[in-house]
Computed example of a mutant assay.
Amino acid sequence: METFNIIYPSPVLAPYIRYYWLLKVDTISEISETSIPVGCINLIFHRGSRMFSETSKELQPQSFIGGLSTEFTELTSTGNVDMIVVVFQPFGARAFFALPMSEFFNSCISVNDIGDISLKELANQIQDNTDSLSSIALIEKHFIKQLHSFDDHNYKRIVTAIEAVNNQPLININSLSDMTCLSNKQFTRIFTEYVGAKPKEFTRIIRFQRALYILQTNPQISLTQLAFECGYYDQPHLIKEFKTFSGCTPTEFMANCPPYSDYFSTL
């Protein structure tokens, strides 16, 4: 039996957290899935068995921060699955953690290794709490408290840049730095600190997510037209990026599962 739910954050946290998702799978059979880059940092709490990464050949930590990724990961279950996942806004995680978000790039860092005592205590509370709604309440209480110490000096700049990336497939880094009134070097440094990847890497992920969303809403579109609408140079460029981020071509992807963009479907 499998249950999957999405819960949206309270209004005070909505600018920083997109949603929480909860997954429970009660089965003795092994399940597998491919995790693809989404463009958002996650905080994952395993209350059941941990997932095994076939890519890195190791178990995921019990509770960890999953940084922005430019790689797909093959995961398999090792028992009953019971997960709570906090999905941050692309620029939101920086409000709650003292470290630059680039420290988590292409990595899964255990809560125990971050040096945040209050987050470690939260992870222990979640581990011992079998009620999902009260667990979400604990998470919200923790992050609302963290907000009081957040210095948002550059926050609006990054929000402006992300909105431009979302709305303009062909936007370039020079335009992003200009609209935030920063030099290219300053913009890249601040963007990477907040988002967890350099602007070029982030725009690649969002271009891929845009392609998924268009395939989701218009599955009959040609690959040539899809490449044009998403800002790829040409069809071979689209196919190459698709294979990098998902492990297969667009045609193979659609043959295996219905395309779905976690990024654009929940904007």
Rank of each mutant, 00 (worst) to 15 (best):
Q146A: 15
D262F: 06
S265Q: 09
D82W: 12
I162W: 13
I65C: 08
L176G: 04
F245L: 14
R18P: 04
S222L: 03
A164N: 11
G66V: 05
T266R: 13
S63K: 03
I126R: 02
F191N: 01
K243F: 07
N218A: 03
C230I: 07
D131C: 09
I117F: 10
S53K: 08
F143N: 07
K156N: 12
T70K: 03
A137M: 04
Y232P: 02
T78N: 05
F228L: 10
I28S: 08
L215K: 00
L13F: 09
Y263A: 01
I7W: 11
Y263S: 00
S135E: 12
N5Y: 07
K240N: 11
V87I: 11
M101F: 11
H153W: 06
A164S: 06
F104S: 06
I206F: 01
F4Q: 03
Y232E: 10
V81G: 12
I7D: 07
A123W: 02
F253Q: 08
Q220K: 14
P219V: 08
E54C: 14
R210Q: 07
S32D: 03
R50P: 03
L22P: 00
L226D: 09
D128W: 06
Y213P: 02
I239P: 09
H142D: 08
L13C: 14
L182C: 02
P37W: 05
D234E: 13
T78V: 11
E33V: 08
D234I: 00
L99C: 02
I214Y: 06
S183P: 05
F97L: 08
S32I: 05
V165H: 01
V12E: 15
F264A: 04
E74N: 09
R94I: 06
A14G: 02
Y8T: 12
G79S: 12
Y19G: 00
Q225C: 04
D26K: 14
M51I: 10
Q209E: 15
I205Y: 09
E33H: 06
I206W: 00
A98C: 04
P259E: 10
W21S: 01
H148T: 12
S222R: 01
I162K: 11
L23Y: 07
P15Q: 06
Q60A: 15
